[in-house]
Design a protein around this nucleic acid. Structure first.
Ligand SMILES: [Mn+2]
Ligand SMILES: [Mn+2]
Ligand SMILES: [Mn+2]
Ligand SMILES: [Mn+2]
Lengths: 152, 152
DNA sequence: CCCGATTCTTAGCTAAGGCTAACTTATACA
DNA sequence: TGTATAAGTTAGCCTTAGCTAAGAATCGGG
């Protein structure tokens, strides 16, 4: 196995980083992926509480488009991780940690969304894309998105 | 449970879409999440083949930062899904479908990366963010990213 | 106040994606 | 050419995230 990187003028420029640097990048992405669902949950729970005063599993399931038992199981995990409190057969509420995380997610979501719309995307697509992108933007990127969105 | 949406002038504007529209958005994101890993694999495999003429599991493992058995298992799935071909104890190669997917991923990766750098992000962070974002950009967004990156 | 409908949970299944330990195969070099 | 090392696989573990079927709790209208 010989390295062809240094000789051929790579037209398409594959990743040129050292393997370890690349591995660090993927580690970051894996980490982000592990938190995505929890972030979507707390953000939605905060929204529901804001709109209706409470977050019921049935509403969470409807908005995510998943079945009730899936919600039950995920909520149990979030409780175990200290993001929500719950009693059997009752609505769920955010802990202090949950509220903090929800606020961060909400902020990221808003910034990404406003940025995409400002770029020229239609609101529907912007919402879809923002829902996925929001979990993968660094603070640096967020800052750039924000100033672009706020520009005169 | 009463809807407070119509009365209060919501300072933070929670998601105002109908539950079903929101569910569709999350379905799109779930779908994207299901494909992320396969996309990262075929893209990396294409890179390795381009650089070294072959893609060995040991190199894949090193660059992803995971253990060898994890790679074996994932490669088996990719083979089952018709994206790669493999023989036991040998390097892996892309099928036609795999090459096509790799090319699409590579294109998205490049566009997102160039866009972020053009926005003002440092290359390190741009790579990290692009690695996650690339799986969640619609064609519309991609088009906007591209014209921003190509602008004079 | 009670009974049917709704909501929520439990049990149990599948698949993905990570790991370690142990085994098998391939490679390389003395 | 034989064998030690490197590479790859297998087996088996765990957790997450989805599902259905079935049971338990709650709620509301008569
Ligand atoms: Mn999201
Ligand atoms: Mn969101
Ligand atoms: Mn990626
Ligand atoms: Mn990529």
């Amino acid at each position: 196995m010989t390295d062809q990187t240094s000789q051929a003028s790579d037209d398409l420029a594959p990743d040129s980083r050292a393997p370890e640097a690349q591995a660090n990048g993927f580690a970051t992405v894996r980490e982000a992926r592990r938190n995505e669902l929890a972030e979507d949950y707390v953000e939605l729970i905060a929204d529901l509480i804001h709109q209706y005063g409470e977050a019921r599993p049935v509403d969470i399931a409807e908005r995510f488009g998943v079945r009730a038992p899936t919600v039950t199981k995920t909520l149990n995990r979030l409780a175990r991780e200290g993001l929500i409190t719950r009693e059997k057969y009752r609505s769920v509420f955010l802990t202090e940690a949950g509220r903090t995380l929800a606020q961060e997610c909400r902020r990221r979501h808003e910034i990404v969304l406003r940025f995409l719309i400002r770029l020229g995307l239609d609101p529907e697509t912007a919402e879809r894309d923002a829902e996925g992108i929001e979990h993968h933007v660094s603070e640096q990127t967020l800052a750039l998105f924000e100033s672009y969105a706020n520009r005169p």
